[in-house]
Design a protein around this nucleic acid. Structure first.
Length: 228
DNA sequence: AACGAGTCCAACCGCCAGATA
DNA sequence: GTATCTGGCGGTTGGACTCGT
């Protein structure tokens, strides 16, 4: 039986107060990130370590951008989602100042709907079958994206068995040209894998995944080459 | 002004993987 | 080899807010 991450009887839940925020900020400024489990006690917070970590990463970190997403960011999210599926941390890793939670929320509240309005299935980035057969080509819901052009040299393997809702973008990219014929978003997404990682692919897909996709570990001259 | 429906987003939950004993 | 701990991730929830009637 797994132990809970903290003694929930003694921890606050729900929205963070300004005082709590300040305590967390002060503590991390002094001691840096890390050891989230012991942080609450050391910082004088009645919070679970996980909660502290989430609050810091998603809200308090000084390098967060916040505010509305730009068109370029939207397009980037869409193409990264087409390539990576619901792996929000990886997608957020490509968007400076954005968090996985923010990207996920934005996708679910804005971009999903936008793609649907465009006649694109947000799960696999294909044209909706019904609309595809209809006489009229899909009309973009807004002026932002007029389509997608995705070029995947190598599709990363997925470590998890995703739920049904999860994107099967992989299949979109694998079996046939992604069905967005009339849509030219002027996006060119190219992904390449270094030879060492390819060796992992053949040996252990999981290793490849962890080595290759973790954003923190991607060097500036990243394997994931994006151009717009 | 009051109310209900819809939307947004911060926060929580459960699971997984890597590190360590 | 295995049990446990910890950090990290994606899915989901619920309260706050907005909008239409």
């Amino acid at each position: 039986m797994r132990k809970p991450c903290c003694d929930k009887q003694d921890t606050n839940k729900g929205a963070w107060s300004k005082e709590e925020d300040q305590k967390l900020i002060d503590y991390i400024r002094k001691h840096g990130e890390g050891c989230w489990r012991s942080l609450p006690q050391a910082a004088g917070l009645l919070r679970c370590g996980k909660s502290c970590r989430l609050r810091w990463i998603n809200y308090l970190r000084p390098d967060l951008k916040r505010g509305n997403f730009g068109e370029d960011e939207e397009d980037l999210i869409i193409k990264l989602h087409a390539l990576l599926g619901n792996r929000w941390s990886l997608i957020a890793g490509r968007l400076p100042g954005r968090t996985d939670n923010e990207v996920k929320n934005y996708w679910n509240s804005h971009l999903r709907r936008k793609l649907i309005n465009m006649g694109i299935d947000p799960n696999n980035h294909r044209l909706n079958q019904n609309l595809q057969r209809s006489r009229n080509p899909p009309i973009p819901a807004s002026g932002t994206s007029s389509g997608l052009k995705i070029q995947a040299k190598q599709q990363p393997t997925k470590p998890r068995v995703d739920s049904e809702q999860t994107s099967d973008a992989g299949s979109c990219l694998e079996d046939e040209p992604c069905a967005l014929p009339d849509l030219n978003l002027n996006l060119d997404l190219t992904m390449s894998i270094p030879s060492s990682s390819i060796a992992h692919v053949e040996g252990n897909p999981k290793d490849n995944e962890s080595n290759f996709l973790r954003p923190q570990k991607i060097a500036p001259s990243s394997n994931l080459l994006l151009s717009q």
